[in-house]
Amino acid sequence: MSIIYMLLAISVIVALIFFAAFIFSVKKGQYDDTYTPSIRMLFEDEIVKEHTTPTQPKTTKNNHS
């Protein structure tokens, strides 16, 4: 049953990794604007559709993110 020590250690480490990831993302300001990305995400699809029209081959993917 001493395997439980290892299991505990792993579970705590995994939890700590996620916790660190959370702190990191907050610090980077990823939660400062939660609204715009939700809209920006929808544009991407539309622009891809625009690519298929042969008239404007130059408009390649221009959007960052």
């Binding site: 715009t36 920006r40 544009f43 221009n62 959007n63």
Partner: peptide, 27 residues
């Protein structure tokens, strides 16, 4: 509105000197 976000983030099509533009809608 979302059109505003889109057009502002595509400013580089209007002027090639603009590299990126990122909108913060709530602000």
């Amino acid at each position: 509105c979302s059109s505003c976000i889109w057009v502002l983030e595509n400013l580089n099509k209007l002027n090639s000197a603009i590299k990126t533009a990122q909108v913060n809608f709530p602000k």
